[in-house]
Structures are given as C-alpha cells and as structure tokens.
Simulated scan of single mutants.
Amino acid sequence: MTTRFILIRTSHAGNVGAAARAMKVMGFDDLVLVAPRWDDVLRRDETIQRASGATEVLDKARIVGTLDEALDGVSYLCATAMTPRDFGPPTFTPREHLPALAQSGQGVAFLFGSERFGMSNEDVYRCHAAISIPTHPDYGSLNLAAALQLVAYEWRLALGGFGPPKEPGGAPLADAQAVAGMLAHWEQALVDVGFLDPKAPKKLMPRLNQLFNRAQLTPEEIHILRGVAKAMSQAASGLRR
C-alpha cells in the first residue's frame, strides 16, 4: 500500500528537510516534490541540516515538473487545505477520515501546497477529499513541515501505529486489507445473529473498525476472528432451520 507525500511548488529548502525528518519519524519515505523553487533543493545545505539524519528520505525523493508525474501508483488523493472550496471535495479532519481510508488498501497521496500560496483550486479539485487540521480559530497558520508531521502522525495511527516494541521474532501485524476483509466477515455474521440491523447500522462497524485498529492484530488473530464470525453465521443458520 503506497503512502506518498507530495510538496507542490515548495519555496524554502529548510521545509523540505524538515518534511523528510517528519516522514522518517512516522516510518514513511516516499517524498515527491513538484516544481520546487530550487532544482538542487534535495542537496542544499539547509535541506540536509533540517533533515537531521533523514537523508535516506532525501536520497529516495524525486523532483517532477507536474502533479500528474507525481501520482504514479496512487489512486486516492488527499488535499491539505485550511478552508473548503466551492464545488471541491468534502473536507474532513484527519481523525474523521483517515481510519476508514486506511482500511481501503488504496495507494494514498497527501498533497501540500506552497508556503506562500497554499494549494491552488485546480489541485484541490483533483482530490477525493480535503484534510483540514483543527486549529485555533484566530490563528490557523501552520508551518509546512509541522502540517505534514501532524498528517503523517494521524495516518500512522490510522494504519495501526507502531505499538510497543516487539520481542525478537514477534509476529508481524496484519495489513489493512486483511483487517478490512475480517471486518466485512464480522459485519455479515453480526447481521446473521441479529445483532446488527443493516437498515439501521448506526456507527457499530466504524467503532469496531477503530477497536480492531487499536488492537494491532496479527495475521493469526485475524484468522481466529474470522473463525468466530464463521461459527456465528453457522449457529444462526442452524437456529433458522
């Protein structure tokens, strides 16, 4: 599952380095710069200094001329915009939108505009959603790297976080697609046993989704939960005979 951070028309080299540092802290390394002010921004002293050791993110980063070139391999775009645009995509806070998006298994790109002008309407209109970070109503100006850090943190949480350090040889975590499949299995089982009314589901499944995200399930645990769901459906089927 691709996670990409795209900086559009960045004007300050230091922000590129700080963005790389923010990404590394959250375990991401796919950075693309669209038409930055400096052609050599990835090698400038200020960039490297502000990266504070996240040089592998800078080494892997790409510079492209257009947003189209930056989108290869991703299918869902999130704008980061302070205010909604007329006729634009729906606007959500990160915590409203990202948990469900994490379960979709899609390649996701988070787009950040220039420090001076933000994102253009044209770029925002191309996105599936706009992510707006809640800030004080009288002062909502966030530094580019600080905004990226917040979004990267919320996205990492939505993906399940890092959790406590595992013992050597500990089981890997199940991926988002496996969790989504298990949730779909549970949804059907809960309908079968009469616990979930599909005509009035309320927020049961989103809450279960968040619960399982917090649990940081392993593939073996996914298998167990699917077994429970299967048994529930079979028991319900027997009762209906």
Results as ranks from 00 to 15, higher is better:
R241N: 13
I63N: 03
V108N: 08
L98C: 03
K199H: 13
A229Y: 05
Q234W: 12
I6K: 03
S132A: 15
E46V: 13
G14H: 06
G163R: 08
Q103I: 08
E167S: 13
S114F: 08
K166M: 13
G17T: 04
A231H: 12
T2S: 14
Y153S: 06
V191W: 03
L150C: 11
E122F: 11
G140N: 13
R9E: 15
M1C: 06
E69G: 08
P137W: 08
L144Y: 08
V25S: 13
A102C: 01
H136N: 11
E46P: 07
T93K: 11
K24S: 12
H223E: 13
A235D: 11
M205G: 02
T91Y: 10
V179P: 00
I48K: 15
R207P: 01
L71E: 01
R62V: 08
A13Q: 10
A152S: 14
E221F: 02
D123N: 14
L150I: 15
F87R: 13
Q149M: 15
A19S: 15
L150Q: 06
R9D: 14
D192L: 04
S233N: 05
V16T: 09
A152R: 07
A109F: 09
L211Q: 01
L239S: 10
P206T: 04
A129T: 12
T47C: 05
T55Y: 12
P94M: 10
A35H: 10
T3R: 15
V74K: 02
P84F: 09
T66D: 07
F195P: 01
R50M: 15
W155D: 01
P137N: 01
P84T: 03
A152N: 05
R37D: 04
L208F: 07
A79I: 08
L77E: 07
K202Y: 09
I131P: 00
D138E: 14
S120L: 10
P89M: 06
D30H: 07
G14D: 05
M232T: 04
I48N: 08
G227R: 00
R43D: 15
M23T: 02
T83K: 15
R50C: 13
L204R: 02
G14Y: 11
V64T: 06
E122S: 12
D72K: 12
D192N: 06
P99M: 03
G17P: 04
K202M: 11
D39V: 11
T93E: 09
H12C: 05
P219N: 00
V16K: 05
G88W: 11
Q210P: 02
R21C: 04
V41T: 11
H185Y: 01
T91G: 07
N213P: 00
S52L: 14
Q216H: 06
G160I: 09
P99N: 00
A147Q: 07
A215N: 02
G163H: 08
G181A: 10
P36W: 12
K60H: 15
G194F: 09
H97R: 14
L111G: 00
H223R: 13
P198S: 04
G169A: 01
F92Q: 01
L58D: 00
R126K: 10
E69F: 11
P36H: 08
G170M: 07
L142E: 02
